[in-house]
Measured scan of single mutants.
Amino acid sequence: ENVVSAPMPGKVLRVLVRVGDRVRVGQGLLVLEAMKMENEIPSPRDGVVKRILVKEGEIDDTGQPLIELG
């Protein structure tokens, strides 16, 4: 899985990584606010952040691509 998608609709509060960062499975990639709760979205695998497809403050839909890993 190279693309991390939104598991729920919500607002992107914080992006915790930058392009080029090495990430490990379970590491937080970004924080979504949904139903007044903050949810940290973890990396599904080890890899390198290739692209960040959303910006802080954006509203996303379920299934929307958020981050691409390489």
Results as ranks from 00 to 15, higher is better:
Glu1Asn: 13
Glu1Leu: 13
Glu1Ser: 13
Glu1Ala: 13
Asn2Glu: 11
Asn2Arg: 09
Asn2Ile: 15
Asn2Pro: 07
Asn2Gly: 11
Asn2Phe: 15
Val3Leu: 12
Val3Cys: 13
Val3Tyr: 14
Val3Pro: 05
Val3Lys: 06
Val3Glu: 06
Val4Glu: 03
Val4Leu: 06
Val4His: 02
Val4Met: 04
Val4Thr: 03
Val4Ile: 12
Ser5Gln: 11
Ser5Cys: 15
Ser5Glu: 09
Ser5Met: 14
Ser5Leu: 15
Ser5Ala: 12
Pro7Leu: 08
Pro7Ser: 08
Pro7Arg: 07
Pro7Cys: 09
Pro7Gly: 09
Met8Lys: 07
Met8Tyr: 15
Met8Ala: 09
Pro9Lys: 12
Pro9Met: 10
Pro9Glu: 06
Gly10Lys: 02
Gly10Asp: 02
Gly10His: 03
Gly10Gln: 01
Gly10Ala: 06
Gly10Leu: 01
Lys11Cys: 09
Lys11Leu: 09
Lys11Ser: 05
Lys11Pro: 00
Lys11Trp: 07
Lys11Asn: 05
Lys11Gln: 06
Val12Lys: 01
Val12Ser: 01
Val12Tyr: 00
Val12Ala: 01
Val12Asp: 03
Arg14Met: 05
Arg14Phe: 01
Arg14His: 08
Arg14Tyr: 03
Arg14Thr: 06
Arg14Asn: 06
Val15Pro: 03
Val15Gly: 02
Val15Leu: 11
Val15Lys: 01
Leu16Pro: 02
Leu16Ala: 03
Leu16Met: 09
Leu16Lys: 05
Leu16Gln: 04
Val17Trp: 00
Val17Asn: 00
Arg18Met: 10
Arg18Glu: 13
Arg18Trp: 03
Arg18Gly: 10
Arg18Leu: 07
Val19Asn: 05
Val19Glu: 11
Val19Cys: 08
Val19Met: 06
Val19His: 04
Gly20Phe: 03
Gly20Ser: 04
Gly20Lys: 02
Gly20Val: 03
Asp21Lys: 02
Asp21Met: 07
Asp21Ile: 09
Asp21Ala: 06
Asp21Thr: 06
Asp21Gln: 13
Arg22Ala: 11
Arg22Pro: 10
Arg22Gln: 12
Arg22Tyr: 14
Val23Pro: 00
Val23Asp: 02
Val23Gln: 00
Val23Cys: 06
Val23Ala: 02
Val23His: 00
Arg24Ile: 12
Arg24Phe: 12
Arg24Met: 11
Val25Gln: 13
Val25Gly: 07
Val25Ala: 14
Val25His: 10
Gly26Gln: 04
Gly26Ala: 05
Gln27Ile: 06
Gln27Pro: 00
Gln27Gly: 04
Gly28Pro: 15
Gly28Arg: 07
Gly28His: 09
Gly28Val: 15
Gly28Asn: 09
Gly28Glu: 04
Gly28Leu: 13
Gly28Tyr: 07
Leu29His: 00
Leu29Met: 06
Leu29Ile: 08
Leu29Arg: 00
Leu30Asp: 01
Leu30Tyr: 04
Leu30Lys: 00
Leu30Trp: 00
Leu30Phe: 06
Leu30Met: 09
Val31Phe: 03
Val31Met: 04
Val31Asn: 02
Val31His: 02
Val31Thr: 05
Leu32Arg: 00
Leu32Gly: 00
Leu32Ser: 00
Leu32Ala: 00
Leu32Asn: 00
Glu33Ser: 07
Glu33Trp: 15
Glu33Cys: 15
Glu33Asn: 03
Glu33Gln: 09
Glu33Lys: 04
Glu33Met: 10
Ala34Ile: 14
Ala34Gln: 10
Ala34Lys: 04
Ala34Leu: 11
Ala34Glu: 06
Ala34Asn: 13
Met35Thr: 08
Met35Cys: 13
Met35Ser: 11
Met35Trp: 10
Met35Asn: 15
Met35Val: 08
Lys36Arg: 11
Lys36Leu: 13
Lys36Gln: 14
Lys36Asn: 15
Lys36Phe: 13
Lys36Ile: 06
Met37Tyr: 08
Met37Val: 13
Met37Phe: 09
Met37Arg: 12
Met37Thr: 12
Met37Lys: 12
Met37Trp: 07
Met37Asn: 09
Glu38Asn: 08
Glu38Tyr: 08
Glu38Asp: 07
Glu38Thr: 10
Glu38Ser: 08
Glu38Met: 10
Glu38Cys: 11
Glu38Arg: 08
Glu38Trp: 08
Glu38Ala: 10
Asn39Glu: 11
Asn39Leu: 15
Asn39Phe: 15
Glu40Asn: 07
Glu40Pro: 07
Glu40Trp: 11
Ile41Val: 10
Ile41Met: 04
Pro42Phe: 12
Pro42Gln: 13
Pro42Glu: 08
Pro42Tyr: 11
Pro42Trp: 08
Pro42Ala: 12
Pro42Asn: 10
Ser43Glu: 01
Ser43Leu: 02
Ser43Tyr: 03
Pro44Val: 04
Pro44Tyr: 04
Pro44Ser: 05
Pro44Phe: 05
Pro44Trp: 05
Asp46Leu: 04
Asp46Val: 06
Asp46Thr: 08
Asp46His: 09
Gly47Ala: 10
Gly47Phe: 01
Gly47Leu: 04
Gly47Trp: 02
Gly47Ile: 03
Val48Tyr: 13
Val48Trp: 14
Val48Phe: 12
Val48Glu: 06
Val48Asn: 04
Val48Ser: 05
Val49Pro: 03
Val49Met: 00
Val49Glu: 03
Val49Arg: 02
Val49Cys: 05
Lys50Ser: 10
Lys50Gly: 05
Lys50Leu: 13
Arg51Ile: 08
Arg51Thr: 09
Arg51Gln: 10
Ile52Pro: 01
Ile52Leu: 05
Ile52Ser: 01
Ile52Val: 10
Ile52Trp: 00
Ile52Glu: 01
Ile52Asp: 01
Ile52Thr: 01
Leu53Thr: 03
Leu53Pro: 02
Leu53Ala: 04
Leu53Gly: 02
Leu53His: 09
Leu53Met: 12
Val54Met: 06
Val54Leu: 06
Val54Asp: 01
Val54Trp: 06
Val54Asn: 02
Lys55Arg: 12
Lys55Met: 12
Lys55Ala: 12
Lys55Glu: 12
Lys55Asn: 11
Lys55His: 12
Glu56His: 08
Glu56Leu: 12
Glu56Lys: 08
Glu56Arg: 08
Glu56Met: 10
Glu56Pro: 12
Glu56Gly: 09
Glu56Asn: 08
Glu56Phe: 09
Gly57Gln: 07
Gly57His: 05
Gly57Thr: 05
Gly57Val: 05
Gly57Leu: 06
Glu58Val: 11
Ile59Lys: 07
Ile59Arg: 08
Ile59Gly: 05
Ile59Tyr: 14
Asp60Leu: 15
Asp60Trp: 15
Asp60Ala: 15
Asp60Gln: 15
Asp60Val: 15
Asp60Ser: 15
Asp60Ile: 15
Asp61Gly: 11
Asp61Phe: 15
Asp61Cys: 13
Asp61Pro: 09
Asp61Glu: 14
Asp61Lys: 14
Asp61His: 15
Asp61Leu: 13
Asp61Thr: 13
Thr62Ser: 11
Thr62Glu: 13
Gly63Leu: 08
Gly63Asp: 09
Gly63Asn: 10
Gly63Pro: 04
Gln64Asp: 13
Gln64Ala: 13
Gln64Leu: 09
Gln64Glu: 10
Gln64Asn: 08
Pro65His: 08
Pro65Lys: 07
Pro65Arg: 06
Pro65Leu: 07
Pro65Ala: 11
Leu66Asp: 01
Ile67Thr: 01
Ile67Ala: 03
Ile67Ser: 02
Ile67Leu: 10
Ile67Gly: 01
Ile67Lys: 02
Ile67Phe: 08
Glu68Lys: 04
Glu68Pro: 02
Glu68Asp: 05
Glu68Thr: 09
Glu68Asn: 04
Leu69Ile: 12
Leu69Asp: 00
Leu69Phe: 09
Leu69His: 01
Gly70Thr: 14
Gly70Met: 14
